[in-house]
């Protein structure tokens, strides 16, 4: 199955094409590049994979949680790529949880028994967090918690992964919980490769969810609350 994977949920702007295994990745690890670079990343990536967009079987997208604006850039772009007036001409969309894509990268082998803690920083000192077992199966729902609270919940031997890793480790030190968590093989950036890997893993397991891109909305994980200062007078 030929998959084009898009990651824009944080400060990464990336596209990966895979055909069971990875074919090509074009990625920029710098904030504020998505608006200008995302389409070019996709064009380059297709060129390196020697594929045209019409040969792609599904578009996988990092569905959230993450930056609201980033999620929407990816979602809008994917909706354009997938677009067809009917289902025959449309390319199906595969939404991939951003935290799941990180957790799958921290799976070592089936004999391990450590937990995986996937973290993505949100605003202020809040962090998205989800616990997984050693094979990447979710143990909890996604939660949005303060870093200090998260640090108190981490246990000896947990394997921490994701852009929130450094902040969590600093916080553990700050509150005097010098416990050993594994971060040595952890990824601290987000990548379209992770999105593609998780899509492939789900495809092999027969759990891949294909949906009509028109119906997709990003998984914001936060209802937007209106406070007076956010109102633009018009």
């Amino acid at each position: 199955m030929k998959i084009l994977a898009v990651e824009t949920s944080g400060s990464t702007c990336g596209v990966t094409i895979s055909n069971g295994d990875l074919c090509s990745t074009i990625e920029i690890y710098e904030p504020h590049q998505q608006d200008a670079q995302l389409a070019d990343c996709a064009i380059e990536c297709l060129k390196h994979a020697k594929l045209s967009i019409s040969e792609i079987d599904a578009i996988a997208i990092s569905a959230g949680p993450g930056s609201f604006t980033g999620l929407r850039i990816g979602a809008s772009f994917a909706k354009g790529l997938c677009y067809g007036l009917d289902l025959e001409t449309a390319i199906p969309l595969v939404p991939i949880s951003t935290l799941q894509s990180l957790a799958d990268q921290a799976v070592v082998d089936e004999f391990s028994n450590h937990r995986i803690v996937a973290t993505i920083p949100s605003h202020r000192n809040l962090t998205y967090i989800q616990y997984f077992d050693a094979l990447g199966k979710p143990l909890t729902e996604v939660a949005l918690v303060e870093v200090e609270k998260l640090a108190n919940g981490v246990m000896y031997g947990d394997r921490v992964v994701g852009p929130g890793t450094q902040e969590l480790v600093s916080c553990l030190h700050a509150i005097g919980r010098i416990i050993e968590v594994h971060t040595e093989h952890s990824w601290t950036v987000l990548s379209s490769r992770f999105v593609a890997n998780t899509a492939n893993k789900q495809h092999r397991a027969g759990t891949l969810v294909l949906m009509n891109a028109k119906d997709f909305v990003p998984d914001y994980k936060q209802e937007f609350e209106v406070v007076q200062k956010n109102i633009v007078e018009s």
Partner: peptide, 19 residues
Amino acid sequence: GLAGSLLVGLHFAKGLCLR
């Protein structure tokens, strides 16, 4: 216009153009 709103239309358009 509003940056967040503009981004949606622009990237939908870019996706269509590429496809």
